[in-house]
Amino acid sequence: MTDLLVASIFQENLVLAYFLGICTFLAVSERVDTAVGLGIAIIAVQSITVPVNALILNGALVDGAWRWAGLPDVDLSHLRLIAFIGVIAAIVQILEMTLERFFPRLATALGSFLPLITVNCAILGGSLFMAERQYSIPEAAVYGFGSGLGWALAIIAFAAIRERLRYSDMPRAMHGLASAFLVTGLMSLGFAAFARVPL
């Protein structure tokens, strides 16, 4: 379990090793405080959606899940994509309403990030990796939290670098997007070093 947690944060970092959520990663990393907000939102959504999707996958979609109902041949696993998207959209909506009701200040801080998360490939990608690697439900919970934390870590570090980068004297064509890609590449190179760490 600890291995899985550490691996999902560092070695298998969703942005830097699997390129998931790059669009949001590049777009919402101009400032550290917004990056922290988005990072927290991703951790929250990821740690809920991955285990819930694991429950739904194991309970209703895998081959033979409907055996108890007298339907041993039903295999709905091709529906997992639509099921995952539905679950993610619903959970983001519920999370938004719950936050508004009980933690209004947190809700206003995270408000604008939550809708963004529904179409973030890191969230759907996390659930799809869970399905592909056939994690059990506790493993899925650990993986969801770890991969969310890894994503948050990456975007906060990247935003901090970008804040400094604004003052650097680069060729004009390199400002913005090109430099962002190169910096992400260097970060990814740094994180690749974790692959050698024995667990």
Partner: peptide, 15 residues
């Protein structure tokens, strides 16, 4: 490896 993809796209955008 992953970093190479970032570098290639970054250099393409730059050019």
């Amino acid at each position: 490896l992953a970093p190479a993809a970032f570098f290639i796209i970054g250099l393409m955008v730059w050019s």
